[in-house]
Design a protein around this nucleic acid. Structure first.
Lengths: 154, 154
DNA sequence: CAATTATAGTTGTATAATACAACCATGATA
DNA sequence: TATCATGGTTGTATTATACAACTATAATTG
């Protein structure tokens, strides 16, 4: 059983290494397109999908600490791509809106990303595409479920 | 066709967001186990697999800039987990060795990671496991192939 | 053999994401 | 009214990452 676990560990290790490498092409410190990082685009996209978005909802979507949400949003406000207003329901809360400039940037990057995504699709055998995407979703869910409640050192 | 591309973009966007989130549980700035980050463990693992490892080979394995390899290795040397010697074949080059302490740490983290990996496996339907892992490998390769040579802004 | 070019790795400088603790102002509850 | 909870910000800090420039050494060229 130990041998089998080691084999599986090896395989998952390779997969995690690969994932770490490919998430680097959608990476934080590289201006992905139009001077916007992938994470920043994620935020623009989330706001674009809804006409407006609360900060609290955003940090749920991003699955990060509240402080990180503030850090990620501020540069977009500085760049004039997002606007922050007080929420109506609670004056502590903030609501985010896309600016006109932000709408344009979001559109441009969406097109660029669509090209990249299309290329990814073309690099997957046609008959495997649905299966591959479903499998990844299963894998991501499995990792999230496993990470929750998993602790070794604590 | 535009609608279809948008649908696919959306799906891949969700997948990339998911990947960004799950790679965060194997994240750089969090001590994964024994005070070692996932990337640091990757390095210990690569050296452990080979009795010794050249820096040049390591940065090929990590697929990062030479400078990044130096940055990643130095803390492990400071912690006494790795040792660096001049390479025999070229006195500019350096060879990395695992120390006794590094061997111990590598072993402890390996066990911990095996537990995590086993949990991930248990969260994947048994009959899907081989398929899921194969699909991810296909997806990772597709992204790498697509990222190579893809430029939008340049 | 000397000069030139290439290479291995390091350092300076810089960015981005991320988190925890502490904080402030506001809302909810007792 | 006092106390507790919440939304978001700020201080402080870490890690990974990259480009440019550098130094020392190796390889190549004439």
């Amino acid at each position: 059983m130990i041998v089998q676990i080691n084999e599986k560990s090896s395989e998952l290790m390779e997969i995690f290494m690969g994932m770490a490498q490919v998430t680097r092409c959608c990476r934080q410190d590289v201006a992905f397109c139009e001077g916007v990082t992938f994470h920043q685009f994620m935020i623009l996209d989330a706001v674009a999908k809804r006409k407006e978005l609360n900060m609290a909802d955003l940090h749920t979507i991003l699955a990060v600490e509240k402080s990180t949400t503030t850090r990620l949003v501020n540069p977009l406000i500085s760049k004039g791509l997002l606007r922050r207003d007080k929420a109506l329901h609670d004056s502590r809360a903030a609501t985010l809106f896309l600016t006109e400039e932000g709408r344009k940037i979001h559109q441009n990057v969406s097109l660029c990303l669509a090209g990249f995504f299309q290329k990814i699709n073309q690099n997957i055998p046609k008959e495997r595409r649905a299966d591959v995407l479903e499998s990844i979703t299963i894998f991501i869910t499995a990792i999230k479920n496993s990470a929750a409640g998993y602790s070794c050192c604590e």
